[in-house]
Design a protein around this nucleic acid. Structure first.
Lengths: 243, 243
DNA sequence: CGAAACGTTGACTTGTTTCAATAACTGTGG
DNA sequence: CCACAGTTATTGAAACAAGTCAACGTTTCG
């Protein structure tokens, strides 16, 4: 895995106009307030008034909303290098909860820290804006996934996207990746029941496309899988691919 | 309806720290490059390399993605005062198409116009960041809608959200609003078939909750409707409600 | 007035959920 | 090292929500 600082700087530099000074100012953010959380712990709770954000240094987390009937919808998973709860910095309230999926290490960012730096460094603000836009683009794809794709295709698309994201930060490769998610997580992310997730995974396995077992995702036939999912990774890396 | 300039300034001022100078700089953006489009015309096409954005001055539009099999998923509707294609300014590529639903008037914003102003006015950048975050929060709700709510509840929630948004810009009231959408639009936004949308609307009508006929949405029992949908408008107006 | 777009309804099919039961892991303490 | 508890995975059968197909009615607009 890549060093987290270079990971993030690389990510922000994608916007392409950051000076050395910009980067120095940003890196100051990442040197302090390191914190650890156990798997399952909540970092942010929906409705919380303290707008604090994090950068995920190590491990996986997910953000989600709980409905009245107890159902859960996972909105996004975060992997190393991702921001976490960025919206709450500006909103002073979090519109979702965030939970560690594995033991994680984060770097806390207070609103004032962040806003001060953005005000001093306009290009940095634009870069963060770019990062938010990228998250939004991913969310739009997730939305299409839920709205218009069948369970099988949905799963295929999700796994390919996750694989592509992980590869960009140096975790996993074309063949697959280590994955701490349970079938319940997949169900809550894909809007399916856990039982159906199990069946879908069996389909894909029996079709020789993808295996998800013992904490590992294996792409058995990535070409056919991409074809099935209609997967186009442009929205993830049309900026990052230059690296 | 409210004047568009005051609408947008009001929206951006929500972030709460804009100076008069900031606002003046921003308003310059809105005085030029007015353009009109007919209903059905495409303003932005998915994959387009020219990153141009707009502010919607008058009318309705929607952004959507087309899948390989021809299916469509509408990601969001825009109403007066909304940004349109903001992401493509930073991405230099649009990840979705945008289409006018009614005859519309927009104000074109070129990337350089926008970026120059953001660089000169840090607080403005933060305000725009805030606006993007708000769009993202809405998208997250839409995502929950698609992933975890039944068709009836989904429709109820969607209509309430739309009603709340429209009220914030002075269109419509507690009783309902004028709505140019067809049942096909609703289907593509809610991830349903047009036939099923029709049936859902009948349910809601027969239950005395909501009527959607002849281009008008009427909330017949907004209390029960809110209860059914579990609708909480906080994510829309916890900043705007002060107005 | 006619054509095209949009809305409505019924009958039937399909994908997904729910319920229920069992099997396979994972981690912990004895 | 094994036993045990809790979590996670697997499977089948039955119920249900939503989709598809097809026909017909209604509105809108040139």
């Amino acid at each position: 895995m890549l060093d987290m600082q270079s990971l993030l700087t690389r990510k922000l530099s994608c916007f392409g106009r950051l000076s050395q000074d910009d980067l120095v100012v940003f890196k100051q953010l990442l040197r302090r307030r390191r914190r650890r959380f156990c798997a399952g712990q909540e970092l942010i709770q929906e409705g919380e008034k303290i707008g604090v954000a994090f950068v995920l240094v190590e491990g996986w987390s997910c953000s989600y909303k709980i409905l009245r009937d107890g159902d859960r919808q996972i909105v996004d998973f975060q992997i190393p290098g991702d921001f976490l709860g960025l919206r709450s910095i500006l909103f002073h309230t979090s519109d979702h909860s965030t939970q560690a999926l594995t033991p994680i290490e984060v770097c806390e960012i207070t609103p004032s820290d962040m806003l001060d730096r953005l005000a001093r460094r306009p290009r940095l603000a634009t870069a963060v804006l770019w990062a938010i836009s990228r998250d939004e683009a991913m969310m739009a794809e997730h939305l299409v996934n839920l709205g218009r794709r069948s369970a099988d295709v949905r799963m295929a698309h999700f796994m390919l996207e996750l694989g592509a994201r992980l590869r960009l930060v140096g975790i996993g490769d074309q063949g697959g990746f280590a994955c701490p998610l349970t079938q319940y997580h997949l169900a809550d992310a894909l809007g399916l029941s856990a039982v159906h997730v199990n069946r879908v995974l069996r389909h894909l396995r029996e079709a020789g496309l993808l295996t998800f077992q013992r904490g590992r995702v294996r792409f058995n036939d990535i070409v056919r899988l991409r074809d099935l999912a209609g997967f186009d990774p442009d929205y993830l890396d049309h900026q990052l691919s230059r690296f």
